[in-house]
Design a binder for these strands. Structure first.
Lengths: 241, 241
DNA sequence: CGAAGAGTTGATCCAAGTCAAACGTTGTGG
DNA sequence: CCACAACGTTTGACTTGGATCAACTCTTCG
């Protein structure tokens, strides 16, 4: 990452007031233990910053405190597959070979990250065995999400894929920001991002979104998603009837 | 699972002689500890047995000792997405909500499984913290594999997907059975299995396989895969040039 | 205001799906 | 041991969902 993209890199004295605490593995440590054992630092990134790069080393584990992140794989010729969208409470670079990242990550909005040295996290696991089971849970959730994503891309139509993704993201965004007022959520994704996640082109994504909009199921413009008819969105996703 | 499909369900006195020991998380326990703490039992299944079912409880964690297993998701109307092919050393039902499986699993050949009660595995983690880190590693590997699989299905052509899958399986099969003589491996998959894993129909899978065969890159018949030209298989997979 | 990026729309193309029929293989029971 | 059934593979003809190419418009932001 470039120095200019980092607006702040500061130690953090306490974990007690962390915005993501209730959503994250660290909740199994007392706030003081978390701060003392993990010695987390804060990192603020501007939108667009690519802060993990394919093949590079990953000495730290990152927790998203605020903002949206995409992780993606790249093929030799530039084709791109978005693997995950990460938001508050989600963990990055946890379950990987720390010497060569299998994917890249980029901030989609301004992003705040909690940075924990991998070595400290492993030390903490030795002291609090409970912690490593919570980490297992985190990676497991990622794995199940990946399987659902794979099922979308492998076996669903374009319209179903889009409905499933928007349903998933609206649920996760609401879980991450329970104080926000439904049914409108900020969705800082372009149609290219959505297409790259679902194995579609931006043009076709546009047409399918137009269909969902014309059917009165949702509205999506100016980076704001509003689910107008959750029932029919679930139906379009192939989850009912 | 039906009683008739189970040919043997026996306690196992020692883990020291386990065929999968070198491939599995349990290698971080002394053989005697593994047997004593985990109290594994053996389960033998006939080909075709569906032994994990979508939505059911999963009180046990399973390790494949021998044979091939597929895990898959089902959509309401019968569309199927194969999520993983598991072989010797691979672990099933580890990182999941044990009250409702998110996928099903079926034996593709005769299969031997090592069955470990989830509760015992968690107890063992408390006694040997090292073990839970090894489990983390196992789930992480699954997750990275899922991301690669997703990238295939989302962004590769049919020919590339097939080349990538066969390359992956030939490497994994060789790692699981290092004593076997390359470059021929048994591949107990029908073209329908391959298609269901890659988001293709069996008919199109057949045509693409015929292409790879005609190009002299591989031979595949009577459940035996032979990689004739690894270089060009990698090229067809989009991994070089 | 102007430029760059994002969204929209139309015309055309093609990779993969669908449907259908024939052929091979495997395994089973009479 | 053969016959037949079930399943898997192969091939051909045709269709289609989504890609591609090419404008053009709308937003955003410096």
């Amino acid at each position: 990452m470039t120095a200019s993209s980092i607006s702040k890199f500061a130690p953090r004295s306490s974990c007690c007031a962390c915005e993501a605490r209730a959503l994250c593995f660290c909740q199994s440590l007392a706030g003081s233990d978390a701060a003392g054992l993990l010695r987390p630092t804060m990192l603020h990134l501007t939108a667009g910053t690519e802060f993990l790069r394919l093949g590079e080393a990953a000495p730290d584990v990152l927790v998203v405190l605020d903002g949206w992140v995409q992780t993606y794989a790249l093929l030799g010729d530039g084709r791109r597959q978005v693997l995950t969208f990460a938001l508050r409470g989600d963990v990055l670079a946890l379950g990987i070979n720390p010497t060569a990242l299998p994917y890249a990550a980029q901030a989609l909005t301004e992003v705040s990250l909690c940075v924990i040295a991998r070595s400290r996290l492993l030390d903490a696991c030795r002291i609090h065995p409970r912690l490593s089971l919570d980490l297992l849970e985190v990676v497991s959730r990622d794995c199940v999400l990946a399987y659902e994503h794979l099922t979308s891309v492998g076996r669903c139509t374009a319209r179903e894929r889009i409905a499933r993704l928007l349903l998933e993201l609206s649920l996760r965004a609401r879980a991450a920001y329970p104080e926000a007022h439904a049914p409108t959520i900020p969705l800082p994704l372009t149609q290219t991002h959505i297409g790259d996640a679902l194995g579609l082109t931006a043009v076709h994504t546009n047409r399918m979104l137009a269909g969902l909009r014309d059917d009165g199921i949702l509205s999506l413009s100016r980076r704001t998603l509003c689910v107008l008819d959750g029932q029919r969105l679930a139906a379009a996703a192939g989850l009912v009837g």
